[in-house]
Simulated scan of single mutants.
Amino acid sequence: MSTSSDVLEAMPAAGDCAYGMHDSTVIKHIGIVLYDGFSLLAAGTLAEALHVANELQSEAADHSLTYRVNLVSARGGTVSCSSSMSVWTEQLAGGKFDSLDNLFVAGGSGVARASSDDNLIELLRHVSGKSITITAMGNAHMLLSAAGVGPRDWPSMTQDIRLESTAETVSKHERDQALMTSLAFVKKDLGADLAMRVADRLDSGGGLSLATAFEEMYDTTLAEKARAAAHWLVLNCAKPISVVDAARMSSMSERNFLRLFKREIGVTPSKYLLRARLDLTCKLLESSDLPVDKIARRTGLSNGERLSKLFRKEFSMSPTEFRARSREKR
């Protein structure tokens, strides 16, 4: 695996072609803000993760996005990291803002000193006023706070990464945090499958299993998505909705949505929707004198004939019999 400094030195200049891009590939421009005393390990880890994402994308037939990473600073030129190594940066000013899609701010031991750098703080304030997503890495949130930029953490990120070993070193923690930030970013752009492949490629084999940690984090997000879809089906069951509508609402393909819903909820979306409609039907039969045909239309079950067939199948009685029995119990 490449070292952080190798990856940083391998980053293309703004005018260079990156990673053998196809003509149809969308290029996403990523800026990493550096300053004297930045963490080379954190910045290099982010660059390495995006480079691996590019490599994995290039192996796929549907290669659709390539990251181009630029190292930038308030003044440009040479910037020294916390371990006294120097890297070359471009000055982030003028038209450079317009070419960026995302901006990451590296953390590091020099963050307190950088917080008093008027040029850097003004730069971050200026960027925050544009349509560029800014993400702090590690303790770089201090810089954004000094610039008056609110936190914009990824929804799927976790700040408390669980380690099997209690002998956590600062450098390992920096790398793990940078990797989790990178994986959340890649997942947002390219999906969890590719993000987990990046995690597998970069996993150091130490106390933290990145692939496992990220998969658990992603599974939690999916479980929440399935529950939200189930709630949406209940709220809208009276409308002429379908499973396709629910999948679209969840921003998932129908196939993946069906698999996820069955796994998390225990039944298929179609079965869940039918139960919601029958439950609403039962409530209307108990509380109103509406004709069965009208109730069927109000609960998304088309007509009285279909409702009667479904009712007999599910409850072994007709809607009219159900109404009579429910009222006898009052």
Rank of each mutant, 00 (worst) to 15 (best):
T89N: 03
L100Y: 03
S84C: 09
T66R: 09
S73V: 12
A74W: 05
S84G: 07
A74Y: 08
L100P: 00
G94Q: 10
K96Y: 01
L103T: 13
S80W: 12
V79E: 08
F104H: 07
Y67A: 08
E90K: 08
S83T: 15
S83G: 07
Y67M: 01
M85E: 15
A74K: 10
S82K: 11
V72Q: 00
T78I: 09
G94M: 07
D101C: 07
S80A: 15
L92I: 12
S84M: 11
T89R: 01
D98R: 11
A93H: 08
K96E: 10
S84L: 11
G76F: 04
S84Q: 15
L71I: 13
S83K: 13
K96I: 04
M85A: 14
F97M: 03
N70T: 14
T66F: 01
F97W: 00
D101W: 06
T78V: 11
S73G: 10
S80M: 12
F104N: 07
Y67W: 01
L92F: 04
S73A: 08
V105T: 08
S86E: 14
L103D: 06
S73W: 07
V105S: 04
G77M: 03
D101G: 14
S84N: 15
R75M: 09
G94T: 13
D101K: 05
V105N: 02
F97V: 05
S84A: 14
F104M: 01
G95V: 15
C81H: 08
S84V: 10
R68L: 06
G76A: 05
V69C: 09
A93N: 09
V69D: 04
L71P: 00
V79A: 07
S73Q: 06
S83L: 10
S80N: 12
N70K: 10
A74F: 06
F104Q: 05
L71A: 07
V105Q: 01
W88Y: 15
F97S: 05
T89L: 00
L92K: 09
G77W: 07
Y67L: 01
V79S: 05
T78D: 13
G77N: 06
S99E: 13
S80H: 14
L100I: 11
L92V: 11
S73R: 08
V105D: 00
S83Q: 13
A93G: 04
E90W: 04
L100M: 05
G76W: 03
M85H: 14
R75E: 13
T78C: 02
L100Q: 03
T78P: 01
F104R: 02
K96F: 02
A93W: 02
Y67Q: 02
L103R: 04
W88F: 14
A93V: 12
S80L: 05
E90N: 10
G77V: 06
G95F: 09
A74I: 12
S73F: 07
